[in-house]
Design a protein around this nucleic acid. Structure first.
Lengths: 319, 319
DNA sequence: GACAATTCTGTAAACGATAACACGGTTTAT
DNA sequence: ATAAACCGTGTTATCGTTTACAGAATTGTC
């Protein structure tokens, strides 16, 4: 890799001059500007970001921490954030924790050591000490990490009520609320609370069960199948879309009960159009998260509020 | 952020000594070691990677470039690479190009400027000049980028034949080979060639059509629907799983024809167990890619070979 | 023609870490 | 007793870039 010194030599000027043309500051004659440009092109010169950063300049990099990237909701979250940040001339780096707090801690430190300008975190270990006094401006997604850190998320309870109301209209005799996902229960409990509240006004029997998320997929499938076999449920309310699809797939009968999900990623809407679910306003959530983060980066030390954005019901299309 | 100088001052030693305890090199008394450790803990010290890197040290970072992260195959590719690299004490950063060559170029430069140790690229712009003489050790995934760059991929043609043979067993009268995905045709054409070869020995009529991948999803759905309406196909061979699912979902009849995909990610196998597809050996592919990359990083300048790993047929389970 | 203002460009000190080198102080060997 | 080997620590140059400061060259003003 060519350095600024090589360019300076090649162009017959000092490094300071080269630096000036790179950053377009101070006075420059058209002549030297051209010479330096030519030298940079000839050598395929790229400024070393590390050296630049060492000088205290911003890295224009934002780190995103997610539990995984297989869940289409997280994949779309990342994609949306990345595109918005790219347009704002930031680069985005992704870290996935697979739910391991140790890995999360490691990556958090790594990001700080790499001098990211900010972090967007949507993980499930709010007790990490690193969040108590974040070294780097941070915004949390769908989870309160500490009172230092602003949070954006959906109105999960309202979403739960939307689903509960929808199910209630079908007057089920026996419902199951099925919690299960890579996540722990934190953003799930308001969803469940909303569902329960909406169903409370009906005469339905409502069971509730959680599938341990740390089991491999086949085990979870089997657990779900067992649970479904126990009773003759005519509505199954899942706390996320992937669980809902598992129920779809593992259901033995050919006449499905009413099955609902939660998250409503574009992927699910496109490839599982039959699923009734709650759509989280991903675009708005990301936009807000980025706005808060940039405020935070630019030193705006407003106090860390929580934002809950409204969700919408998506009724599955039957062909 | 505390610096090494702060730690040195706090511990009452020189920066060199602190550096020694960080890197565990040279002679150190237990006493100073403890003092320095205490100071580091007290200040929450994290070495600045930029400064370290400036010294010519490896960054232990690998960049991954993918077209997108929504396609479960890519998501799993990234996840697998990330986990393997994490175990090898590398960090992984992801860049997605959305098929925009301009963005790819930008990210490629950015990675070089960020001093990544290596790059794994699975994109679709082999004509980028940057690949001709890569600034950073690079390995290509499922695509030849240049003769400088080793490539790992699946035996796509064999996969096409597997699918073709499977379909041929069902003695279809009229088949459609449907190419469509975010990708251009490069890794798809051997798949198609394999399918054609296998079907050539049957009396089936075989149509072939490509759905433009740069259209938004609803448009593509509509195009697919139109194509399907034209004839009464009893087998549809798609060049990737997502296209196959789209066919599944958009098929008007309630008795599906034979539909096949390609890629066989775990996600698809779990959530679309009914789909017959070809499984790419993702774990092996990633392991090989990383091995080649690390060889390349460690200076091993073996010539850039291509590797095509064998694939397997996955027959969809009917409930 | 003298002096200031305006352009242009170079010198050198940072930034945070590493590591070669130097320099004392202990042991150990002879 | 003296040299050699071994420990423990500090001084300092270095990596690639930015930027304050200082000169030099040009232009403008009276």
């Amino acid at each position: 890799m060519a350095t600024i010194t090589d360019v300076a030599k090649q162009a017959g000027v000092s490094v300071a001059t080269v630096s000036r043309v790179i950053n377009n500051r101070g006075y420059l004659s058209a002549n030297t500007k051209a010479k330096v440009q030519a030298a940079m092109d000839a050598l395929h010169y790229q400024p070393n970001i590390a050296a630049r950063n060492l000088h205290g300049k911003a890295t224009h990099t934002v780190g995103v921490i997610l539990p995984d990237i297989i869940n289409p909701f997280y994949a779309e979250l990342f994609q949306t954030v990345e595109q918005l940040l790219f347009a704002a001339h930031y680069q985005t780096v992704l870290c996935t924790t697979n739910g391991e707090p140790e890995k999360e801690k490691k990556y958090l430190r790594l990001m700080a050591a790499n001098q990211v300008d900010g972090i967007i975190s949507s993980t499930h270990n709010p007790d990490l000490a690193d969040y108590q006094n974040p070294a780097v401006p941070t915004v949390a997604f769908d989870r309160v990490l500490s009172d230092q850190i602003p949070m954006v998320g959906s109105d999960n309870e309202a979403g739960g009520r939307l689903i509960g109301d929808y199910v209630a209209q079908h007057q089920p005799k026996c419902c199951l609320i099925l919690a299960g996902s890579q996540e722990d229960l934190a953003p799930l409990s308001p969803r469940i609370a909303g569902m329960q509240a909406a169903l409370a006004v009906t005469p339905s029997a409502v069971d509730q069960v959680a599938v341990p998320f740390d089991q491999p997929a086949p085990v979870r499938n089997q657990l779900i199948r067992q649970q479904l076999a126990e009773k003759d449920y005519d509505a199954i309310l899942c706390t996320d879309d992937l669980t809902a699809i598992t129920v779809f797939e593992s259901y033995p009968a050919d006449r499905w009960p009413l099955i609902t999900g939660f998250d409503g990623s574009k992927f699910i809407r496109q490839y599982y159009p039959a699923l009734t679910t709650v759509i989280q306003p991903l675009e708005d959530l990301c936009q807000l998260a980025i706005r808060l983060l940039r405020n935070n980066i630019d030193g705006g030390k407003e106090k860390a509020a929580s934002y809950q954005l409204p969700v919408t019901l998506h009724v599955g299309q039957t062909k």
